[in-house]
Amino acid sequence: MSARLLCRLLAAPGEARALDAAQWNAVIAIARAELLIGTLAFRLRGLPLPAPVEAILAAAILSAEEGRRQALWEAVMARRALAALDCPVILLKGTAFVAAGLDAGQGRHIGDLDILVPADMLARAEAALLDAGWEWVKSDPYDDAYYRRWMHELPPLIHRERDRMIDVHHTILPPTARSTPDPAKLIADAVPLADGVAMLSPEDVVIHAAIHLFADGDLSGGLRNLWDIDRLVREFAARDADYPARLVSRAAEHQASRAVARALRLAAALFDTPIPPQPAEPLFDAAARRRLLARDGWGRGTRPATRLAFYVRSHWLRMPPAMLARHLWIKMWRRSRHAG
């Protein structure tokens, strides 16, 4: 068993009719582990399903609707806190999808609120949020200094009453990473939504998702990101036939061509996303597919070696070798001190 069956159901919900009890148990466990149960519930809505599955998915829809409402409320809270800055609050990821009413937001799990502000506004944004009830999560001085010096976002803040986290980004990749997207372009082309918030342009939103998947992280939660990419590309391409071509040329402007090509190919492989021809990288794709689908029928992560390889790769991409060595050394030294 792998997450392959979950992908099939998301891409082609009609295949749900053929599932037996053992397959349902596995798919539900895997969908929960990948935080895709709400998405699956929306995709299968209205199909004739076994009664227990229907009850589970109905609850997942209620849960996703409540999550959506809380995420939008959190965006309102952040916008109010930052009103004095007089710059648009650009929503990123899940909150942007639901605020814009995109397909990618249907049933999507939303954890933290992610926003983008211009780098020169960062200090003022931080002060305004602290003033409005957000607090630091990390008290460790090394982590704090690391974030401020090397990351593309402030150290995470949590609201002391609502217990919700906010990540304030000033760009979409760490400045130390191999490629450098242009934050000025991201901000200049952002699309206003209602109520003083905005989101990235249709091209940039997919580029951000692709970068997050293949130029930054270790692919944990990757299936969810890839599903976002499938939904976004389909919806934008349906609105405008030139979209795929514009996406490819915009990716080049952000030094993200490779990440975007990889994201499109894997979305096509797992979710049948219609995409223009992309340069092939069969070895990378096979490894990424193995990593993305690595779940057993109980929702447990499998393939530890592949996982480790992508974890190591994520650090390798994020910073130059000497810096990586220093960072890992400090992390290890601290861990051994904490354990002892």
Binding site: A22, A29, P52, W298, R300
Partner: peptide, 14 residues
């Protein structure tokens, strides 16, 4: 046993 053999929740003791 769960209706239709489909459980609401999975529990793992490992």
């Amino acid at each position: 046993t769960p209706d239709d053999g489909i459980a609401d929740y999975n529990v793992r003791l490992s």
